[in-house]
Nucleic acid binder design. Sequence first.
DNA 1: ACAATTTTCGACTCGTTAGTCAAATGGCAT
DNA 2: ATGCCATTTGACTAACGAGTCGAAAATTGT
Lengths: 199, 199
Amino acid sequence: MTKIKSPFNREEQYAAKRVAVIRAAGAAFRRKGYHNASMVEIARTLGLSKAALYYYVKSKEEILFECHINVYDAMDALITSTRNKDDDGLERLKKLYGAFAHLLIRDGLALLADVDSLKGEFQTIVLTRRNKIEHAVTSIVERGMGDGSIKKADPKITVFFLMGALNWLNVWYEADGRISGDEIATQFVAQMSAGITAL
Amino acid sequence: MTKIKSPFNREEQYAAKRVAVIRAAGAAFRRKGYHNASMVEIARTLGLSKAALYYYVKSKEEILFECHINVYDAMDALITSTRNKDDDGLERLKKLYGAFAHLLIRDGLALLADVDSLKGEFQTIVLTRRNKIEHAVTSIVERGMGDGSIKKADPKITVFFLMGALNWLNVWYEADGRISGDEIATQFVAQMSAGITAL
DNA sequence: ACAATTTTCGACTCGTTAGTCAAATGGCAT
DNA sequence: ATGCCATTTGACTAACGAGTCGAAAATTGT
């Protein structure tokens, strides 16, 4: 069996395992909360010892930070990819909201509430990123209110309402539950849009 | 100056202070999360030492438990008080939802997400209570779907969507913010009902 | 086979924080 | 004043969990 050039492969392995660590930790954080999920526990789910984790990661806080960033990166990407010149505000929001829902359901990603467990720079960056997302969504809503597709109201409240519904997903949605992810996403979009569509 | 019968007064004082402790702790939990809020810190906001707290309370976990129970008690009361024979499902839900919103905004009460920090009995009880509330709300939604006032859909998803928006309030709403509580509650009810009203 | 390097682990340290306790404080009635 | 009881405290203990480190075990290249 032919092997790929070694040094490159090594880095890849390392990176892949690092990602696995962060994913496993993220899952644990989502299920039990940051402080209730211990490093030993996370290690065990990967069949590793706690010490081994620190070969891939600098600290527990760093993991939490990356979990947050991963979600925001994915969301930023969705904001870009769902942007479409021809769509009015409502249509844009529907596409984006559906994409967000899928992201949170399908992938192991979760909007963590544990921002307060991050200190200093870490927290500042995460909050900035979150604001950026919220601002982008708010812009879409404002656009919709401008072009007449979305009912006029306070855009901030509108957005918080919608984002709240998404965040709560983490708490009750179990990937193996009997309700399919698609079904949830579809109904979320429907309920969201019905709530704000201009008459 | 005439004093009220002493022993009774004493108990009242004690009870009042106990409540103050729990309220202060609840506020801290809401702001920083259960684990990030230390007992020393909570004590300081009350001008007390940590040890004094334990004169009123058995453990930190007990405080968290009571915080949860307080909210659920208040919600149960609202479920009862907003029930009205003449209202259809949608109308009932609007009244209840508005009352919930007010509860979370006005009073120091918050739907805490930290259920996982509770162990054993404590957790079981809290989860049971939460289920009870969700079930009651779901019933109202189902009633509305039956009487034609609410659009047919999966009632569970509908409810989770709506409760999520409420839960998220804690994260962004600051009592001193520039948006008034009434304004938020009103828009929440409007957005909620528009999202589910049968056409 | 063997050396070099990556990966993993057991056993430790260290800091933090919940919780305890014996003693001090303060109000109040007599 | 004095004694009684409620309240508060400083100083302590105990437990838990993050993070470290030197050595062992895999893995890989020659």
